[in-house]
Design a protein around this nucleic acid. Sequence first.
DNA 1: TCGTATTTTCAGACAATACTGAAAATAAGA
DNA 2: TCTTATTTTCAGTATTGTCTGAAAATACGA
Lengths: 181, 181
Amino acid sequence: MNKPATKDHAAEAAQLRVARDEFVTQWGTIGSAWGINRTMAQIHALLIITPHALTTDEVMAELQVSRGNAHMNLRELTGWGLVRSVIRKGERKEYFEAEKDVWKMFCIIVRERKRREIRPAINVLKDCIDRADGLKSPEAAAFTRQTKALCEFMEMADGVLSKIVRSEQSSIVPWALKFLK
Amino acid sequence: MNKPATKDHAAEAAQLRVARDEFVTQWGTIGSAWGINRTMAQIHALLIITPHALTTDEVMAELQVSRGNAHMNLRELTGWGLVRSVIRKGERKEYFEAEKDVWKMFCIIVRERKRREIRPAINVLKDCIDRADGLKSPEAAAFTRQTKALCEFMEMADGVLSKIVRSEQSSIVPWALKFLK
DNA sequence: TCGTATTTTCAGACAATACTGAAAATAAGA
DNA sequence: TCTTATTTTCAGTATTGTCTGAAAATACGA
């Protein structure tokens, strides 16, 4: 151990690399459970823990994925508003950086999922309620009762989420916590 | 139209069947977006809008799926606690019925997703935080800052959900709504 | 105990989704 | 304008996750 400083530095870098890889990999797995494409979740994880913006090529190298894959998922993340593209003056390459503020991330995800999944689900329910409207059989009554209850619940949830997210600041929820039980 | 009553009855039954099919199909699609197996979501939808308990064979016939598929997904739903199996005296067949109360359904789903996905995610984060603990580089600092922020946020969310769900009654959330904005 | 109804399992088939890699399109500087 | 860097697209391929169907196991009644 005649170069302790250097060795320590290398060891630390390796240790960080392991931690980062672990995070990126696991986050991809977690994303899958919530209906999010594995690579998309991994790219997001990578950008979140990287202090500077990355190019498509850097993402490709880091995650060992193809250009097409990296490109499509970076576009998708940009579409969600979770990632911004940055053009540095004098450079032709496009850089990507993630929104780092956890509360803002949460708000973006909630807003998008509301728009993409909760709203359409409510519309499906309304459509089903309309189709069964006026039917007299007991089966029809049961169907209508359930779909209406589900619809009301989802509209309520949609409303609650809207209010939580509207404020755009993390203070509301911890504050509301005190009132809950 | 010399048998109007009969015809109306048949037409109504057909109309209801369309509405039910629409609901079941669409609910399957919606489930997919949230990481839930399509058939599992469809079986759940079917049981929710059916006033009486169904056998595996009835589910198979209704959804046009194989015995294995129906069986596995009914077991999975039972595992979640969203479906109960009922044994009628004098009958050998097993019947299945869903929890119909929407608020109870919500509580079950939240509790299970907390247990299966949120808790494990928090553990992954803690593990990553530990791995990078003590590292000095700016990259390590950025990594630690982000993972800690994420971890704190998820623990907060976990806590809020616990409190919402603990009460086991729908009154809390609408009540809390008044305080939000 | 035996015969039958019912449930459970799981290897192989299939379908849906995601990924690759290379060609085409585009944009920027010379 | 041409050249080169970069982005975009997408047909074909790979992977993952799901489903089937039939055989094995189990439970029940006679």
